[in-house]
Structures are given as C-alpha cells and as structure tokens.
C-alpha cells in the first residue's frame, strides 16, 4: 500500500488576553476543536485510538503572553494556505488567533526540535520608592548569569534553571519613568528552556538584597505572581525561531 499524499501546514498563532491562563493541554485540545470546526481535511493517526495529526511548539508557562506559538497540522488534501488560514481564523477564539500559515515539507523536523530560539519581552515597573535604574537590572542579570543556574521549587521538587545554557543574550531598556523593558534571547531544546518568571524571581531577590535588605525573601517557585522590587505587567514570548536560520 502506498502512503497517501499528505501536507503539513505550519501555523503561527498568538496567546493573549485571558486565554494566556490556559494550560498547554487546554490549548492543544482547543486547537484540535478549531481544526474540526474549520472543516479542514485533517489526517488521523492509524491504529488503536485514532487521533488528529497535529503537533505543537514547546509549552508556554500559564499566564505568559505570546505572539509566536506554532502548530503543525497534517492534511490529507491540499487547501491553499490563505484559505486554510481564513477558515482557521473563523473557527478560533480571538485570543488564540492564527496569524500565518504556510506549507512545509511533510518530513520537516518537529516544531519542538526546530524552534531552538525563543525571545521574551518583559514589561515591568519598579516598586514605588525604589530608584532602580536599567543599569541596576543589567548588573543583577549579569551576576545571575555568572552564577550559571537558579534553584527553584516546582511543587515540592527542587529544580534547577540552567541560565548559562538557556540565556544567550539580554538587554534592558528604559521605557518611561520607572518602567523598563527587558528582552531575553534564549535557547531551548529537549534538555530545557528558559523560565522567565524564575529568572525574574532571581532578579527580584538580587535587587531586594540591595534595596530592601530587611525584607525576608519569598521562596522561589513556579507560578509566582508578585515581586518585591517591581511589578510585571506582561511576559511576552515575542518570537520562536530556528537558531541555525538566524539572519
């Protein structure tokens, strides 16, 4: 039996608004339903428990915004990419809207292997009364990089974020009075990826040691929402791409 001709559509979508609180599996589930609502000729796996052939880029932490999430959808018939995109847009909740769709080789590497670069933008404001400068933040980040890694708690388990391997570059810009924008250029692969909220927790601890020496530091763990020295308006994954194809 010859393999029927299949087509791999690669779609970029966003995660924003309230829907950034969806977990990875919830998003995956939702997109499968989007594809069925869109009426696209999706392929299903063979065997015991057939399911849609769709694969996603690396999980985004709950609460993080993204302008660059991806999925690969295998189709059994060719549908012109603009038409497929239009049908997906019409069937997708606004805050997960797909922005581009293009065919890639059916044998193309999986997204999780292909997208080795992720860029994050963090919009933050320093806490009232603290005169934090961009140089302070850069300095603190540099010291965290020198340390190489950050220990944190995930539930009851102690984990280690390998900063040396995952953080390739960073920059800090002064946006407005007391407001900053940090850009993190990160490397991600099967062995791990940057967790911006953990890095921010470490940054907070570093700044607090200088600005708030009398305050007890909170335990560094996943899901942290508030910091001592600054507030974070948004963490945004602005780009995911392949490092080898960097311009």
């Amino acid at each position: 039996m010859t393999e029927p001709t299949l087509f791999k559509l690669r779609v970029r979508y966003v995660k924003r608004g309230r829907l950034r609180y969806l977990g990875h599996l919830e998003v995956a589930h939702t997109i499968e339903r989007v594809v069925r609502r869109a009426g696209l000729p999706y392929a299903v796996t063979q065997g015991f428990s057939p399911h849609m052939r769709v694969a996603f880029s690396a999980a985004l932490p709950v609460g993080t915004y993204s302008e660059s999430e991806w999925y690969d959808l295998v189709l059994t018939e060719y549908v012109p990419a603009p038409e497929a995109l239009a049908r997906l847009v019409a069937a997708t909740p606004t805050d997960l809207v797909p922005l581009e769709a293009a065919y890639v080789d059916i044998r193309a590497k999986a997204l999780t292997a292909h997208l080795t670069r992720a860029v994050y933008r963090i919009d933050m404001t320093s806490a009232e009364g603290l005169a934090i400068s961009p140089a302070d933040i850069e300095d603190a980040l540099a010291r965290i990089c020198d340390r190489g890694s950050i220990e944190y708690l995930r539930g009851k388990k102690t984990k280690r974020l390998d900063v040396a391997r995952t953080l390739t570059a960073f920059s800090v810009e002064h946006a407005a009075s007391g407001a900053f924008q940090i850009t993190l250029d990160t490397h991600q692969d099967n062995d791990g990826s940057m967790r911006p909220e953990i890095l921010l927790g470490a940054l907070d601890a570093m700044l607090a040691a200088r600005y708030l020496p009398d305050v007890e530091l909170p335990v560094l763990e996943t899901g942290i929402a508030s910091f001592l020295c600054f507030s974070v308006a948004a963490i945004v994954r602005v780009e995911q791409s392949c490092e080898d194809e960097r311009a």
């Binding site: 309230r18 829907l19 609180y21 969806l22 977990g23 939702t30 339903r33 609502r37 609460g63 909740p93």
Partner: peptide, 16 residues
C-alpha cells in the same frame, strides 16, 4: 488571583 489558584481556566470565560 488567577496565578494563585489551580485550574485558572475555570474562571476566565471567553469560550467558543
């Protein structure tokens, strides 16, 4: 409060 509770998607609405 959503960052502090389990399954925040229980509370966000905006479903299809």
């Amino acid at each position: 409060l959503l960052n502090r509770v389990e399954k925040p998607s229980r509370y966000i609405d905006h479903e299809w």
